[in-house]
Simulated assay, not measured.
Amino acid sequence: MPVSQIHPNWSRPAHSAVDGYSIEITAREADTLTALAPRIPAATPVAIAFLPGERRDDRVRAAGAVRQSGFEPMPHFSARRLDSAAEFEAYLAAVVAQAGVRRCFVVAGDPPTPAGPFTDSMALIATGAFERAGIRAIGLGGHPEGHPNMSEVECFAVLAAKCREVERRGMAPLIVTQFGFDAEAVVRWLAALRAHGIHAPVRIGVPGPAGIRTLMRFAALCGVGASTAVLRKYGLSLGNLLGSAGPDRFVATLTAALTAAHGPVRLHFYPFGGLARTLDWIDTYARMTGQEP
């Protein structure tokens, strides 16, 4: 499946670092997205997180709101949070029927013990449910700072196997990374990814502007490296936890280092400080770099 079916802008170079970005929301942010829709480019991919304690109907409603706002919904499927095959297929059928979903993001999920029969993302892919439902692209998780349960070699081997399996089933793989603070580590990971023969498009996770305490809390929850040296590169200081920070330095460093050898790359924003604040940052960055997103 051609890259252009994942996002229409993949087939041409980005004119700005934020050109062709994607963004993530939770089910409870659906109304906020609808209100802010005029500020977001048409057809922007919008991921819908799969969080504990949410109702399936709320995630389905959020996916519908994304579609109705003119964007491309990409709901998350957390394998270990699904308590049965029936629940999995019911959720998939609902988002396809009610939101015209054509792409999904598949992860193992955080629980150490699965709630049902699925232990990892490959288990969901192997059911064949996605291609039967007409899904055209599958998002897979990337870990520039390493995986807590796998070596770097194992991580790339597993990711390569997932990409091959997605393609074998007639869908397109897309890699979306965890957010981080070290752009140089991301660039090294991209080079290693391509050296391992993985050529799928990549969306680099970027934390939207937020208070430093908020960023640190999400970093701890997600296992993101936040050493003093890394934070200093990002522009953060542990001595100023009352301040706030945006990803200006991270994005500038990443953009300056990327070459054609790194393959197709776009940004994926995690709006930890709120959707409106992240859109403000994107608009400002686009103006400063001379190009609207």
Rank of each mutant, 00 (worst) to 15 (best):
P2M: 09
I6H: 01
A14R: 04
A14H: 09
A14K: 12
S16D: 06
I25A: 12
L33W: 02
T34M: 06
A35R: 11
R39N: 13
A49Y: 03
F50H: 11
P52M: 06
D57K: 09
D58T: 07
G64R: 15
S69H: 04
F71N: 10
F71D: 15
F88N: 07
E89Y: 00
A93F: 01
A99F: 05
G100F: 01
R102H: 03
A108Y: 04
D110P: 05
D120A: 15
M122S: 14
L124D: 01
G128R: 05
R132M: 05
G134P: 04
I138V: 13
I138T: 07
H143T: 11
H143G: 00
H143E: 08
H147G: 10
P148K: 03
E152I: 12
E165N: 08
A172Y: 00
T177H: 02
Q178F: 06
G180P: 01
F181C: 04
A183N: 07
A185G: 08
H196P: 01
I198S: 03
H199D: 15
V202F: 07
A219C: 06
A219D: 00
V230C: 08
L231G: 11
L242Y: 15
S244A: 15
T253D: 15
T253K: 08
L254T: 09
T255E: 15
A261P: 02
L267Y: 09
Y270P: 03
P271Q: 14
G274T: 08
D280P: 09
I282L: 11
Y285R: 06
A286H: 02
G290F: 14
E292Y: 05
P293A: 10
